[in-house]
Amino acid sequence: MNKTLLISAVLATLALAACDQPTVVNVPATPVAVPGPAGPQGETGSQGATGYQGETGSQGATGYQGNEGVQGETGKTGDGTTVIVVPPEAAAPTN
């Protein structure tokens, strides 16, 4: 009985495997479009509309106070000579 069951199982497996054949389907190749010669040029398009004026930006923040500069050295004492600088005379208006 064991041999009969074994042989039946092997024959059933082979019979089912023989029935399961994939079907091959040949798909036709997609035709490739070949471009023809260029046509005549079209007319020039119309001028586009003018854009809107943008909004004015907001005012920037106030800057920081600068640091105080370094104090200069005291100047040397003069030799007693005084120099007077006279501004130039104003030119007379021309008529």
Rank of each mutant, 00 (worst) to 15 (best):
Q41P: 14
E55R: 12
S46E: 10
A15H: 02
Q65F: 01
P31S: 12
V32P: 06
Y64Q: 00
Q47F: 15
T50N: 02
P22H: 06
T81P: 00
V32N: 10
P40V: 09
G80P: 01
A92W: 01
Q53C: 09
P31R: 15
T56L: 09
T23F: 13
Q21H: 10
T94N: 01
Q41W: 07
M1Q: 08
P40E: 02
K3I: 04
A33Q: 15
A38T: 12
T44P: 07
G39V: 05
G42H: 05
T50H: 00
I7L: 13
E43W: 04
I84N: 05
S8Q: 03
V86C: 02
T77M: 05
V24K: 13
G39M: 05
T62M: 15
A38P: 08
E68S: 11
M1W: 13
E55L: 12
A91S: 08
T94G: 09
P22G: 09
T77V: 05
D79W: 04
V85K: 02
G48P: 11
P37G: 05
A9F: 06
G57C: 10
T62Y: 04
L14E: 02
Q65R: 03
A29H: 14
G60V: 15
S8N: 11
A49F: 12
Q47W: 13
E68H: 01
A12Q: 00
V85P: 00
G66A: 09
G36P: 07
T13K: 01
G57A: 11
P35M: 08
T94L: 10
A15W: 07
V70S: 11
T44Q: 10
E73G: 09
T13H: 01
K3G: 05
V25W: 12
Q59A: 11
G42R: 07
G48Y: 04
Q47I: 13
G69W: 01
V34W: 00
V27H: 15
A92Q: 03
A92H: 00
P88M: 01
Q21S: 10
P87H: 06
T23Q: 13
G51C: 10
T81W: 05
I84C: 00
Q65A: 08
Y52E: 15
A92T: 11
I84A: 02
S8L: 04
E68P: 14
A49G: 08
V34P: 03
Q65E: 12
L11K: 13
Y52H: 05
T81R: 08
G69S: 06
E55C: 04
A33H: 07
T44H: 03
Q71Y: 11
T50M: 08
S8R: 01
G75L: 08
G51H: 06
A29V: 11
